[in-house]
């Protein structure tokens, strides 16, 4: 059975995943159309697997913002594989391409790395970090909403004391989700706000505390130090915390996302990624490179502006979304 069929069957068997994958299909329609469309174009145009074919394939992957190095490695591996299996027809190579891409996604990791680490009967602290304008506060709002709906008692800490209107923005989300927001005035020390947040979460017996932080560019050393301090406060106040450090990445970001993942990890030991704005034409392929090089899993993807458009990341569904057209062609 070909790899594609296996993947397809997997979804046929599992109704629940079918529902998930249809959301992905919807949200990533534009992404998918252009991506798999181009792979199909490519395969139709080149009947023989040769140097030109690989060059073009390289471009398709690069245009999806998959890291340049990752693409080069992938192409090298593919070239080897094609030689090994003596593949001459581009139609056959399609399977190999998808298989390799999925391999990068999964790596050697356990598939459960994508689940959010929420402790039972104990306060779980989630720290949310990222550069400016990626959608940290919005993602927190959506996440709070969802956790609340699951019956969790959620508290938010307004740790972005820098950007104008940031506290108010989180408060609006707090109202919408009907959860408490702990805040101080603009300009106050973020570590102090988070400290207050922890105290409040403890005294209110909350299940989850989500800490917002100000957006910062990863090359600002002082601001990154500030972030480490916030994390130290959390570590000190709640044993085992933060249970999650989520790095929010904008899917439109190019190669710099790798730098972001690396530097934020150094400062706060990032445990997962929230990939936002995937409902545009951007492909977010850099996630492949990040997983490949830094082994950080994606935990959530943002597929739209609505609360339920923040989806738990499901690598199978994600790959399915990317390749759905190709699968259905078969």
């Amino acid at each position: 059975m070909s790899f594609m069929k296996k993947l397809k069957n997997r979804f046929k068997q599992d109704e629940e995943t079918e529902e998930v994958s249809s959301k992905y299909k919807e949200g990533m329609k534009k992404t998918r159309n252009s991506f798999s469309g181009r792979i199909n174009d490519l395969i139709a145009r080149y009947r023989k697997v040769d140097e030109d074919f690989f060059e073009e394939l390289e471009e398709v992957l690069i245009s999806a913002d998959v890291g340049v190095m990752t693409v080069m490695d992938l192409i090298d591996e593919l070239t080897m594989e094609v030689k090994r299996q003596n593949i001459k027809d581009t139609k056959e190579v399609k399977d190999v391409i998808s298989e390799k891409l999925v391999e990068i996604y999964y790596g050697d990791d356990d598939e459960h790395v994508e689940e959010l680490n929420i402790q039972e009967n104990q306060l779980s602290v989630i720290l949310v970090v990222g550069v400016n304008g990626v959608g940290k506060t919005t993602s927190i709002g959506k996440l709070a909403h969802q956790l609340k709906r699951q019956g969790k008692h959620v508290v938010l800490a307004a740790g972005d004391t820098f950007r104008a209107g940031a506290i108010e923005q989180l408060e609006v989300w707090g109202e919408r989700a009907n959860v408490d927001v702990v805040k101080q005035s603009a300009g106050s020390d973020p570590a102090a706000v988070i400290f207050d947040g922890i105290k409040a979460a403890k005294s209110r017996n909350a299940d989850v505390l989500i800490c917002d932080t100000a957006g910062r560019l990863q090359n600002k050393v002082n601001l990154m130090n500030e972030l480490s301090k916030v994390k130290r406060v959390i570590e000190r106040e709640v044993p085992g915390a933060p249970h999650e450090v989520l790095l929010v990445l904008d899917a439109t970001t190019g190669q710099n996302a790798l730098n972001q993942a690396k530097t934020f990890s150094e400062a706060t030991n990032v445990s997962g990624i929230v990939l936002t704005k995937l409902d545009g034409t951007a492909k977010g392929g850099i996630v492949l490179a990040i997983r490949n090089e830094l082994h950080i899993p994606v935990k959530y993807v943002g597929l739209g502006e609505q609360v339920e458009d923040l989806q738990e990341f499901n690598a199978h569904a994600f790959v399915y979304g990317l390749f759905a057209d190709m699968l259905e062609d078969e």
């Binding site: 999806a64 550069v131 304008g133 904008d250 439109t252 970001t253 545009g280 034409t281 492909k283």
Partner: peptide, 12 residues
């Protein structure tokens, strides 16, 4: 436009 934008910058 965010200067960190990747390949999608042309579409936008």
């Amino acid at each position: 436009v965010d200067s960190m934008t990747g390949q999608d910058a042309v579409n936008v």
